[in-house]
């Protein structure tokens, strides 16, 4: 620890200050724009309650699916010698950089009733993903799961794998090693990755509206409701936005930068 605290030069501090304002001003803007007297009533209209309920259900389902299917994938990516792993990882992480609306178009092309798979799903199981909650969940999972996968894969790579070796030397088969050693060791990252995926799913807009449409009570999640209300009732749009803002801040604070560190 240095005895004299060294400060960055004044121009750097000034530039950093501008950057902070850039992020702070929109936050202040939405808070001062909110019509606090009507916030509660705006959030309790039947449309808002539907959107809140739907968002909660679909985002929790998307986070659950991300954990259920993302964990085995993270395991494979972190531990096995599958060929073309960088390519595979790129494919899985693509939705993180892909514009969500493009993701929605791709899902639509692959799973709409007129597509081969979508048609088959409908004929064989009576399952229709477009304009259905299942489609909204699928769109949310598509964009949210990569956040979970990179978090958990990073944790698996970062952990001391000699514990897994020790477990194997004690006679534990690979699934037992995973369940009793790997998973408990990376549990904090599973939680962090799950929360990240959930937050991302909660905010999902582009892929959902493109693939699943904007059907009240079925696919109209909070972000879609915000977008719609902006046309007719700005106060309600701001109120719903505040909910999303509060949830995002809550997730951020509770994670405390955990996804930033490698382990």
């Amino acid at each position: 620890m240095s005895r004299v605290r060294r400060r960055p030069p004044a121009p750097v501090v000034a530039a950093a200050g501008v950057t902070i304002l850039f992020f702070a001003i929109p936050l202040v803007g939405i808070l001062q724009r909110a019509n606090w007297s009507t916030v509660w009533s705006d959030l309790t209209t039947s449309g808002a309650r539907d959107a809140l309920r739907l968002s909660l259900i679909s985002s929790v389902l998307a986070a659950g699916l991300s954990i259920a299917f993302g964990t085995p994938l993270a395991w494979v990516l972190a531990r096995s010698a599958v060929p073309a792993k960088p390519l595979l990882r790129g494919l899985v992480l693509l939705p993180m950089v892909l514009p969500p609306v493009v993701g929605g178009v791709a899902l639509l092309a692959a799973f709409s009733l007129r597509s081969p798979i979508g048609g088959w799903l409908h004929d064989a199981f009576g399952l229709q993903l477009t304009f259905a909650t299942s489609g909204a969940v699928m769109a949310e999972t598509f964009v949210a799961m990569p956040f979970y996968v990179i978090t958990v894969e990073g944790a698996m790579r970062g952990m001391d794998q000699r514990y897994e070796d020790a477990a194997a030397s004690l006679g534990a088969r690979r699934l037992t090693v995973f369940r009793r050693v790997t998973l408990p060791t990376i549990a904090p990252s599973v939680v962090a990755g799950g929360m990240l995926a959930w937050a991302r799913a909660l905010g999902e807009f582009g892929a959902t509206i493109t693939f699943a449409g904007n059907v009240m009570g079925r696919t109209r999640t909070l972000p879609l409701a915000v977008y719609l209300e902006l046309e007719s009732n700005q106060d309600a749009a701001v109120a719903l936005s505040l909910v999303l803002l509060a949830v995002s801040l809550l997730v951020l604070v509770s994670l405390r930068g955990r996804w930033l560190s490698s382990s």
């Binding site: 070796d165 020790a166 194997a168 030397s169 004690l170 006679g171 088969r173």
Partner: peptide
């Protein structure tokens, strides 16, 4: 390893 019966 899990079938070797070697204690380490």
């Amino acid at each position: 390893p899990e079938e070797r019966r070697v204690g380490v």
